[in-house]
């Protein structure tokens, strides 16, 4: 029996901070392992690191380089902890809830692109920028047409129609603005 997969609409996986932590661990652990293995085998520090080790051995614990190192390590550590705690916005939005168990989802990027393309098909629209937020869809429409009211009305109805098709589970309120280009 295999495990049931998790929900589709999950919080971000924090891949970038995890990769940063993994690379830091490999670099620090690998360097220390190499130093200590060479010391254990030959009884002396390896040639390329002799200067560094002897300089570090002469350092007091309250020396400025040690403090700077501790500050860098502490900042990195706090940054990683914050990236683990801050929940982040899921990349997928749940849509079309029905009686069937499970979820239907669509990526926020796809929703934004679909709405942007549908607005770009409206007469008088030169371009559009769409961003999908937690409870709102922000649409900025660029038009060279003087009668911006009509463009705004048509663009808004196009966005509303697009959202109506997808039926997001947590409703998205469209906010459409028109900027006139010259």
């Amino acid at each position: 029996m295999s495990a049931t997969p998790g929900r589709l609409t999950r919080r971000p996986s924090r891949v970038l901070p995890a990769v940063l932590l993994a690379i830091t661990a490999i670099a620090a652990g690998g360097f220390a392992s190499w130093l200590l293995a060479a010391y254990a085998v030959d009884g002396a520090w390896p040639d390329p690191a002799v200067g560094l080790v002897s300089e570090a051995a002469r350092m007091r614990l309250d020396a400025v380089p040690i403090l700077i190192g501790a500050a860098v390590l502490g900042l990195l550590g706090i940054g990683l902890v914050i990236s683990a705690i801050v929940p982040g916005e899921p990349a997928l939005r749940e849509i079309l809830a029905d009686g069937t168990p499970g979820q239907t989802a669509v990526s926020r990027r796809d929703v934004a692109l679909r709405l942007q393309r549908s607005v770009e098909h409206v007469d008088g629209v030169q371009g559009a920028r769409v961003s999908v937020r937690r409870k709102r869809v922000d649409v900025v429409v660029r038009t060279p047409v003087e009668d911006t009211g009509t463009v705004l009305r048509r663009s808004r109805s196009s966005v509303e129609e697009g959202l109506e098709q997808l039926r997001p589970v947590s409703p998205l309120r469209p906010r459409v603005r028109v900027s006139r280009t010259r």
């Binding site: 998790g6 999950r10 971000p12 996986s13 924090r14 501790a70 500050a71 390590l73 940054g79 990683l80």
Partner: peptide, 27 residues
Amino acid sequence: RTISGRRNRAALLLGGGLMTIAALWVA
């Protein structure tokens, strides 16, 4: 295909927490 967010968060909390404690100890 997916990546386990729970495992990454646990690793980040553990790694970041240990780094912060080590830094505070030295400082």
